[in-house]
Design a binder for these strands. Sequence first.
DNA 1: GTGGCATTTGTTTACGTAAACATGCTAGCG
DNA 2: CGCTAGCATGTTTACGTAAACAAATGCCAC
Lengths: 329, 329
Amino acid sequence: MADVAAVAGVSAQTVSRVANGLNNVEPSTKERVLAAMSQIGYRPNSAARALKTGRFNSIGVIMFTLSTFGNMRTLDAIATAATQAGYSITLIPIALPTQGQLLGAFTRLSEQAVDGVVVIVESHILDRADISLPTGMPVVIVDSDADDTYAVVDTDQTAGARDATRLLLDLGHRTVWHVSGPEASYSAARRRDSWLRTLTEAGVEAPPVLVGDWTTNSGYQHGLALAENRDVTAVFAANDQMALGLMRAFHENDLAVPEHISVVGFDDMEESSSFWPPLTTVHQDFSAVGRLCIERLLTQIDGSRPSGGATIVPTVLIERQSTAPPRSI
Amino acid sequence: MADVAAVAGVSAQTVSRVANGLNNVEPSTKERVLAAMSQIGYRPNSAARALKTGRFNSIGVIMFTLSTFGNMRTLDAIATAATQAGYSITLIPIALPTQGQLLGAFTRLSEQAVDGVVVIVESHILDRADISLPTGMPVVIVDSDADDTYAVVDTDQTAGARDATRLLLDLGHRTVWHVSGPEASYSAARRRDSWLRTLTEAGVEAPPVLVGDWTTNSGYQHGLALAENRDVTAVFAANDQMALGLMRAFHENDLAVPEHISVVGFDDMEESSSFWPPLTTVHQDFSAVGRLCIERLLTQIDGSRPSGGATIVPTVLIERQSTAPPRSI
DNA sequence: GTGGCATTTGTTTACGTAAACATGCTAGCG
DNA sequence: CGCTAGCATGTTTACGTAAACAAATGCCAC
């Protein structure tokens, strides 16, 4: 910067003003400074700037894994929204969703240069109060318990699961089976609870929950078991990948979808419309989730208001060809 | 830091030494400093540290989009490897793969605090020489032309596509159709070229290339066209998602896979084994790609050697149930 | 014409850290 | 016993920037 100032024949402060587009600088001076900048190849040093201003223009994202469809889409949306707002994204992956790992991630993040944090860790470990997030660090949590302490952004899991279950009941199915996500996941729990409540409210007895782990393979395994049971006519899977696994198991056992068994998923991944048959599923608006995360985080960063409470993003039921009335009707 | 020093009754420099675990510090002094640190809740300021040392312990990743399977997996692997090496990841998404956008990303990145950059932009735009990466900034490029100027890490697209094509020829198919990725993509071009060469070397006439865009829908569209042509018995899709689209189109036209038509994909996404039928595909080792990216980048950062040239990661052909000899045999 | 105000530019300072250098102390050796 | 080597610790300084304050210039109103 000093070199630029020397070349342009001005003070370093004036260079700073030009670099930040601030204050009133004589147009002719500005031009001289800009010329000197490009001549020298000046690049502002973000470390020095951050040191001086205390702002990093960066947002940390803590994720358990990138390998699930939803997390990836959410991250994509967050990254896009953050970039538009002039922030960059610092990614902190944690290998295992354990308390210690998460704590380590927070520590690392607090040493990293971030103005705020988005946590995408679908797990109960956030419960424990002993997570010592650096005081005053703005946080938004995706897919967690609606703890009013933190700002939470999430899809309307409850409505989505209810819509899916109702659709199958309305088609005339006697009951609806459910392949859930893993025990530790909040969203899995909410989808399961909503499915259960919907059945109960309809006066239908709920079959036992089949617990999966989001993978196609876990869906496949449960599908093989369900295929044995000729009473099963409708299954609601907690995500599209498990729904895919279910359908594979049914195909292998010569059970036609939807003629013999109806299947509904959750997520609406891009591929779902090309499954065989195209999957009826609950569409999640991940872009909106990501956008809202950044929005709420920036509110906290700018205003330094804690701003707890949940923001809920609605879902849309997408009917394709994996659902039909039961055969006996 | 000054507060910690005051509480511990030592100088700031000693605190710094303890914080970095450097030099020889009297154990008793060290203990006092550590106690003071935790009492005050001291967190090192990364901006100041970066300003002083010129190192940020952060790696930038420039991606066109997160929404393709391969990019996501690569990013995941990069993030994991970087974290293990004590680096964090700064994500710079670009909305469109245009020259200007990429240039903007580089500029932003050069202002951001990164020690090196991984570029995952599968496009010819990297060709142009006018990309002004800050001089001396270590770079690794994934999936690009093997330009010796930069370090390149990539999957062995050529071998993968050759294996896939050969498998179908060896099964007795007269020829193999190909649904490629978009024109602008390097990996798409390499898979297509390798497919073409394999056919030519086998003395087989190549049908026209069907150009897709990686999406299931583009595969579906081409599949509808192919279904009209009863001569088609084998198709090699440049990724699994397009293979899925193909199979959907064939199903809808009552063409059985693999009895009427064999299909091979590329990527081996997690879902591919649960497609109907389970997809024969070329497995890519994304974890290895990510790991090698970080490895090569760190070599450059530490040794400041330019280190051009390509590192190739082998592929594995996974035979599942979407391939069989043609019906007429 | 002169006082006051706005506008532009310059000067000083501090952000938190670590390298370089300086100091003081202890132990070992002749 | 004195000298030196080596180690623990302290002092000074600089990294590049922007805020706060200061100064210079020009303009307007009375």
